[in-house]
Design a protein around this nucleic acid. Structure first.
Ligand code: SF4
Ligand code: SF4
Lengths: 134, 134
DNA sequence: CCAAATAAGATTATTTATATCCTATTTAGT
DNA sequence: ACTAAATAGGATATAAATAATCTTATTTGG
């Protein structure tokens, strides 16, 4: 239950790799993909998503590639995961209002809220700097 | 990310309903299903799973139905969820050995172990008695 | 024997996950 | 300007998981 998808796993591997590189070092997608053992075309999609929200910067054309959008200590694992997997939500009733008609007096609902908070908290405390092993 | 499936949600609703009933009260599947708003045939499958591991007891034939297998304070939400969803595992590398060749020196791995432990802990602390609202 | 009820296996439909393909666009260097 | 290198983005394909239903069998009380 509650398993990260490949997409999420690949996303983390890819961006953590960037975090291990020297700052502002532009990395080829092909290099990243082979280094972290992820299908290149799939990783391309993931990094496009990252790029849109500024987690990475992309450079097109010859000499292009990817760089972290911010310093590694300013990017949390929570951001990375939610960028590709969507919000952390152990059940539909914690994604927003009106998802379940029973939530008003449901005794289980608070448990999921608690799970959501705990997981978010753990992931938010981990930065790419922590994960880079530097 | 990490969302409970319908099956899990239905399973919880169904067994929590049983916990709200008087002890040893045999409940019709059709009554449970309509009370918690779950497709009856789907709930049947779920309760068959519960029955196999003793979370509920089933009685066949006329006057049959389902009863909790143990007193509600002895059944945790963790048991219920894992019975139908499988083990709590935020990533494949925490399901068992050898799931990922990178786990030996992976910096992310411990984070998932932590998430797994926290979630399991939260769910294990909640019993059906708590959820029954009695 | 009959009607009520769950058990169990098979099957189907839908959705999500996991990619891959193709074309477009951008850029550096010549 | 031209070319090769590189990412962007849309469309498509395949596979797997989810969600549900169908059918048949078995059990039980009356
Ligand atoms: S836990 Fe409660 S509020 Fe959440 S989906 Fe289930 S019934 Fe609805
Ligand atoms: S977090 Fe690390 S150990 Fe776990 S699957 Fe990813 S690479 Fe493997």
């Amino acid at each position: 239950m509650m398993e990260l998808t490949r997409k999420g796993e690949y996303a983390i591997r890819g961006i953590v790799y960037l975090a291990t590189q020297p700052a502002e070092q532009v990395c080829l997608l092909s290099d990243i993909a082979s280094a972290v053992d992820v299908p290149q075309t799939f990783l391309a999609k993931i990094f496009q998503q990252f790029s849109k929200i500024g987690l990475v910067r992309s450079y097109r054309g010859t000499g292009g590639g990817f760089v972290l959008g911010r310093s590694p200590d300013k990017i949390t694992l929570l951001e990375v995961v939610e960028a590709v997997e969507g919000p952390i939500a152990p059940n539909r009733c914690v994604t927003g209002e009106g998802e379940c008609s029973r939530d008003a007096d449901c005794t289980v609902h608070p448990v999921w809220v608690s799970v959501q908070n705990q997981v978010r908290d753990i992931l938010a405390r981990v930065t790419l700097l922590d994960l880079s092993g530097r």
